[in-house]
Every structure is written in C-alpha cells, then in structure tokens.
Design a binder for these strands. Structure first.
Length: 221
DNA sequence: GGCCAGGACACCA
DNA sequence: TGGTGTCATGGC
C-alpha cells in the first residue's frame, strides 16, 4: 500500500473515531502566536492560565508584548514553565513581527516561503512552532509535524526516510493537497490519538494504531 | 516523589 | 551528526 493511500485511510479512520476537532482554542491570531511559544514542552492547561493572565492585564497581543520587558512579562507567564526563556523569546518575536509586518493580518498576505525564512531566523521558533504559527495564526496550508506524528507514522510503517519530519510533512501535504482546514484537522486528530495511545513504547491493547496497522496487514499486505 | 507535557537550543565528542 | 543537558511549572 502506498504511503499516500495509507495517509488517506488513516485520516478517515481517525475522523470516524474523533470527529472534526477544533484544535487551537484562541480568540485572535495574536493569541495563537503567543500560545505557540508558551506551549513548548508544556501542557495546554498551564498555557491557558497564562493567556488568562495576559488578558486580565490587557497584554494578550503582539503589539502590547513588544513594548514589554522580559522581567515584566515573565511573572505573567510563570505557570507555563521555562518562563524566563519564554518571556525573552516572546518579546523578541513580538518585536520582530510588529516591526516587519505590523499586524498578523498583513503578515498573512505574504508567501509561505518568505514567512518561513523570517520565522526560521527568530530564536526560539523551531520547526513545530513555525508550522503552528503558519497554519493556525496565518491560515497557510501547512501540516504540523510533532513528536506524536513521528511516533505514529513510524508505528504505521509509513516510510519517512532520513529527514523524517520533512518527509512526513511533504507526504501529508501531497496526500491532502492544498486544503488548510484538512491539514489542521489531521494534526489535531493525530495529537488526540497520540495522547490517548502513544505515550508508552509497547502498544496498548485496543490501540487504534494497532487496528489501523491490522487493516494494512490484512486488507493491504 | 517521579514522570510527562501541543520544544528549542547550546554544547560536546 | 547525534546525544545530552538546560530551561521550570503543574497535573496525575
């Protein structure tokens, strides 16, 4: 069975199981960018506390954060962990975005290649954070590959090659096409699956990943 | 009390 | 190039 076909089948099985998910709960695109830094290696419940804190202080926008000092921001985002590091990176990112594009609305009008080059140059914005910003804040047709996705693809035996993140990203984008909503939803579905079933090495019983693997083995050897 | 969470980066061999 | 340490809070 070809990888593209597998990805399509996996997507339909996951949709069947979890439905259409609202993945990034945010009131504004600015909130998505802020959340993308705060959520690094941190559970979303901790991030929500920080977002609430920022809103209470009327600081939940890139423009507001770009005018803050690291020492001012850090206490407001303490519950997300790594708060000193995240405060510094968030202020820096906010300054760079507002200086160059002024607003995310204007930023979203730029081609993906330029946005990637820009975001890659910002310290603290790695691959996953960049793709999350592109997809969920700027509405670009980009698939976010996180550690759950890598783990699940490897268990499904979908060939990913040496540069696995790039390979998965390209394969999924090729399979799904230029449909931003589907790409966003598939990422959400994979994280839900990963949270439920792929936290430990040995596969658990009744794992849907197993049933997907079995489907491949029996129907498409 | 230990492990993990919607990562990224610096450093070292 | 790949492995390891660091950043740190909060829930289970």
């Amino acid at each position: 069975m070809e990888s593209l076909e597998r990805i399509g089948k996996m997507h339909s099985l996951l949709l069947e199981r979890y439905g259409d998910l609202e993945w990034w709960p945010a009131d504004t695109p600015d909130e998505v960018v802020i959340g993308s830094i705060l959520t690094q290696n941190t559970s979303w419940t901790n991030v929500e506390k920080c977002i609430l804190n920022l809103k209470k202080n009327n600081m939940c926008s890139l423009m507001a954060i770009s005018g803050m000092k690291r020492e001012e921001l850090a206490p407001l985002i303490k519950s997300s962990g790594f708060y000193n590091q995240k405060a510094e990176r968030l202020v820096d990112l906010s300054i760079k975005i507002t200086d160059r594009y002024f607003t995310l609305e204007k930023m979203s009008g730029q081609p993906v290649e330029e946005l990637e080059a820009f975001l890659e140059s910002v310290k603290g914005v790695g691959r996953e954070t960049m793709d999350s910003i592109l997809a969920y804040a700027l509405d670009k047709s980009v698939f976010v590959v996180d550690k759950y996705t890598v783990r699940i693809f490897s268990r499904l035996g979908i060939e990913t090659g040496a540069h696995e993140i790039d390979s998965i990203k390209n394969a999924v984008e090729k399979s799904v096409g230029n449909n931003c909503d589907i790409l966003k939803n598939l990422h959400a579905l994979l994280v839900y699956l990963g949270k439920d079933h792929c936290r430990t090495k040995p596969l658990c019983r009744d794992c849907p990943v197993n049933s997907i693997c079995n489907y491949y083995a029996t129907a498409h050897p």
